[in-house]
């Protein structure tokens, strides 16, 4: 792709190293102009790299496993995408998911529908509390959700002590949902994720609420002056985030078939990473769920690649941090150029 004149005219350090800078800015432009296409390209490259390191990786079976791994992250990152589109952040997604997973395991013996209903209700209540704090009491999203994560984490630790009396059981139906496949290769949890994704993609693009979410993230003051009830938009956003996190927790506990206190903890940075990789700005108002889906898939394939390369959990954590930082920087630079 050739760089547009605007990109090369930037008053930048590029003057010192013209050639790499031009190529670099070309990559940036393509990321800005066609984020989905570029991200899909990165995904294909990663798949190819993984296949090169571990021949036979790109098989229907492995791709199905990749989808299986990606679905919980995709659901978790969906809530994060909504929060970040409104200019906020939700640091309670992983705690909510873990709490939902715990409820499934703890109440599994009392019937699957009941356990599912309670887990989803928990997501609803957590999301509504977040939404009331952020929308009505104007608490910064970061503080509200960080506090919520603390409350949930402490409550879970307490609850886990009572679980030691009985053996927590994940219902078979949930286990099947989280790890089974149909038609040979299609994971069941993808059948949960895909409709959610379609609803979110269409809803964000076409519905009034979707537009309001973008508008609130873009300029909350202008929204209020234009008669948008900003607090209602924020409330709905965080309620959706809570429910989506609970769904992610259900899929996750179905996959692992056991709940522990740190079940979803590693997914917190990953959920932010998937959104940032997908090109949604934390300042709100730009981006979308399509990028997040690709971000979740890229992270999942990258995780497989790093596991094959025998990189430790510590190394992975550092690398994800670096990737988030690097990509956020590239996106910020591109936004500046425009």
């Amino acid at each position: 792709m050739t760089p547009s004149p605007a990109a090369t005219d930037r008053p930048d350090t590029g003057a010192l190293r013209p050639r790499p800078a031009v190529r670099w800015s070309a990559a940036r432009r393509s990321l800005a102009d066609r984020p989905a296409l570029t991200l899909a390209g990165i995904l294909v490259l990663l798949l190819a790299a993984t296949d090169a390191v571990s021949p036979g990786f790109v098989t229907p079976h492995q791709l199905s496993t990749t989808l299986l791994y990606a679905a919980p992250l995709g659901a978790l990152a969906a809530g994060q995408t909504l929060a970040m589109l409104t200019g906020g952040i939700d640091l309670s997604v992983s705690a909510t998911a873990t709490a939902a997973a715990y409820l499934i395991a703890g109440l599994g013996a009392q019937g699957t529908p009941r356990a599912l209903a309670v887990a989803l209700a928990l997501g609803l209540v957590v999301g509504m509390t977040n939404g009331i704090g952020i929308g009505i009491f104007r608490v910064q999203p970061l503080i509200m959700t960080l506090g919520m994560a603390g409350v949930l984490g402490g409550a879970l630790t307490l609850a886990s002590l009572t679980f030691t009396n009985g053996v927590p059981v994940v219902p078979d139906a949930v286990h099947e949902l989280g790890s089974g496949t149909v038609l040979g290769y299609l994971p069941l949890n993808t059948l949960v994720w895909a409709p959610l994704a379609v609803v979110l993609l269409v809803g964000l693009a076409r519905s009034g609420l979707g537009r309001a979410i973008y508008a609130v993230g873009d300029n909350p003051l202008a929204c209020r002056l234009a008669g948008v009830r900003v607090w209602q938009v924020l409330l709905v956003t965080y309620v959706l985030g809570g429910v989506l996190s609970a769904i992610a927790g259900i899929l996750l506990v179905g996959y692992t078939n056991a709940a522990d206190l740190n079940l979803a903890t590693p997914y917190l940075l990953q959920s932010v990473a998937a959104v940032v990789i997908g090109g949604t700005s934390i300042l709100g108002g730009s981006g979308g769920y399509a990028g997040t889906i690709l971000g979740a898939l890229i992270l999942t394939v990258l995780d497989s690649l790093l596991t094959i390369l025998n990189v430790s959990q510590a190394g992975k954590q550092m690398l994800y941090g670096a990737i988030v930082l690097g990509l956020a920087w590239i996106y910020a630079r591109t936004a500046l150029v425009e």
């Binding site: 940075l269 300042l283 430790s312 959990q313 510590a314 994800y320 988030v324 956020a328």
Partner: peptide, 29 residues
């Protein structure tokens, strides 16, 4: 990094936090 990149504090410190945490785990598993 925050000043030079213009990336919001939350994202940068969340990311560096994971880098420091990973390093700590690497130093002492």
């Amino acid at each position: 990094v925050i000043v030079a990149t213009g990336v919001p504090d939350i994202i940068v410190t969340l990311a560096t936090g994971f880098v420091w945490g990973g390093l700590a785990l690497h130093v002492m598993p």
